[in-house]
Write a protein that binds this DNA or RNA. Structure first.
Lengths: 231, 231
DNA sequence: GTGTGTATCTCGTTC
DNA sequence: GAACGAGGTACACAC
């Protein structure tokens, strides 16, 4: 990895056109040829960038560009899409290279998958007398997160989200429509379960006869811990 | 901005838990206190990070940690959510600080907005005899990208996307449902227009009687150039 | 402020 | 490899 702090302007031409006026920025050149242009603020997203696979070509500025103060031109071209990023370098304040090696990568732990597991293990949270049929119940248009049966034996399709949005209600609606055509399953009622359900989503769901269930992740983990300790 | 290349391990505890095993990485400390942990590959997303507003506290390792080879502990805490990122620093290979100043920011040019403008200007692309009513036609549930009339005088609602996905079809369906209840507008037919329409989205759209229209952005820009030159 | 829609989204997983 | 869903999504814009 090469780190360059330099006064530069940047032009991107690809899926859109974008321009960065002259300012001092960090240019991060990764060993796969990719380039990130970072400012000293904002979030983790660079101001501009080129994703791998791509290649860097350094060239000399022409006379006009030299007069303007440009000392080097970096042209980064994407291997497949022909997107281009052109960095016009003025003054370089820092330039260093470092060997980092391959990264072992991130180990993640629990979000929706964990919620699904917890709800499946504590299916009574759906209501008294509910039994689990299975997780990831496959339909022609995709997997339903949880399929259960209620006390009366009716099928219950559960769509799980961390944050319950209108999209999730639409998704569940499509599943319900399909599943209610299947005589083995029908009647199927829907439950929209999430840690947080947005008002618009709740409105839409309830308008369509879908029950909303707000889940308390921490409380569910507590249940899990208790269960682990007891058995 | 401070740049540190160091052997480190990283633990994040917040909306999820994540761990990065010991390896050499770039630690980018921005002046707003935020921290990015980058490896020498992948795209612009850091392996781990803390977004502003947050604060960094440097502390000394305890005896056990010193024995393990840890020389410094960085604890980055988010001001509001209390998310925490803990960086255990082993060997530091590089450490430099730089003054960058405030960035003037990115100037973007055209994607969906440009597509919308172009289609509105060349409304005949919808079919012969079509006339524009208006762009961003407001309804109770949001703006329809383009409202037009076809040769027979029927209303045409156009939903525009760069990439036509199932979500876009759902969105247009909601608009159509609402607009068809308005006697001033009904009957309203739908057109789903995008540079690329995914098979599933096309299927869903056509099943609902929505016409799909694939747009050629470059050709449309060509039309625009010609028009600009002629008039 | 919150809510909504887009993204040069990125990143996984599945088919 | 394509497609689909999720994200510690981020980001801009409307209300």
């Amino acid at each position: 990895m090469r780190l360059v702090i330099a006064q530069c302007s940047v032009d991107y031409a690809g899926r859109l056109s974008a321009h960065l006026p002259l300012a001092t920025r960090l240019l991060m050149l990764k060993s796969d040829g990719s380039l990130l242009v970072h400012s000293d603020g904002g979030s983790y997203k660079p101001l501009n960038w080129m994703s791998p696979p791509c290649s860097l070509a350094v060239s000399q500025p022409d006379e006009l560009q030299v007069e303007a103060g440009i000392t080097e031109l970096w042209t980064v071209t994407h291997a497949k899409t022909a997107d281009q990023l052109i960095v016009s370098i003025y003054e370089v304040q820092h330039d260093s290279a470092h060997e980092l090696g391959v990264d072992p990568g991130l180990i993640k732990d629990g979000v929706e998958a964990h919620l699904q597991k917890l709800l499946a293990e504590h299916i009574h949270l759906l209501g008294d007398g509910h039994t689990l049929v299975r997780r990831e119940y496959m339909t022609a248009i995709g997997p339903v997160d949880i399929l259960a049966r209620d006390a009366s034996g009716a099928s219950v399709a559960v769509e799980l989200k961390r944050r319950g949005d209108i999209d999730g209600v639409e998704q569940l609606t499509r599943y319900l429509e399909l599943m209610n055509r299947d005589p083995h399953l029908a009647p199927v009622v829907g439950v929209f379960a999430a840690q947080q359900i947005k008002p618009q989503a709740r409105m839409l769901a309830e308008d369509r006869g879908i029950r909303c269930l707000v889940l308390d992740y921490d409380a569910m983990r507590g249940l899990d811990d208790t269960a682990s300790k007891l058995f």
